[in-house]
């Protein structure tokens, strides 16, 4: 259940963005979650909703963009899609790779709205 901790961090960052921009409301919050980041999507959605309810972020919604894991093989240099249950390089069969994408937990974009535009 570290999704609660992750959701809390997201809420902290979004609250900061809202205040910095003197916004009145937050709309869609888009996050990139790598499929090898060890985050359960449903738990994160649940936690985000639970901890924003009744707060200044009420009404904000979370959009999770899943990022496919891509690795660069340390043996042959091939870049290939790493399946969460099978890390084998599609070119040479090695499982020794550097992760290029797939472990990220990051906030891509926040939509904010102010009553008086200006």
């Amino acid at each position: 259940m570290h999704e609660l901790g992750i959701a809390t961090q997201i809420v902290g960052v979004v609250t900061r963005v809202k205040e910095e921009n003197s916004a009145d409301r937050v709309g869609l919050v888009t996050v990139d979650i790598g499929l090898l980041a060890g985050i359960d999507r449903e738990s994160l959605e649940f936690c985000f909703e639970a901890i924003t309810k009744g707060t200044a972020l009420e009404g904000a919604s979370l959009r999770i963009e899943e990022v496919k894991p891509v690795g660069k093989c340390r043996k042959c240099g091939e870049e290939y899609e790493v399946r969460p249950d099978d890390f084998t390089c599609s070119a040479c069969g090695s499982t020794d790779f550097d992760m290029i994408t797939g472990s990220e937990i990051s906030i891509r974009e926040v939509e904010i709205e102010s009553d008086e535009e200006g």
């Binding site: 992750i6 961090q9 997201i10 902290g12 960052v13 963005v17 921009n21 916004a23 709309g27 869609l28 996050v31 990220e104 937990i105 990051s106 906030i107 891509r108 974009e109 926040v110 939509e111 904010i112 709205e113 102010s114």
Partner: peptide, 15 residues
């Protein structure tokens, strides 16, 4: 709605 481009790692504070 205004969009704020962030690209911020969630665990930045911890890191």
């Amino acid at each position: 709605m205004k969009k704020v481009d962030l690209r911020e790692k969630v665990l930045t504070a911890n890191d």
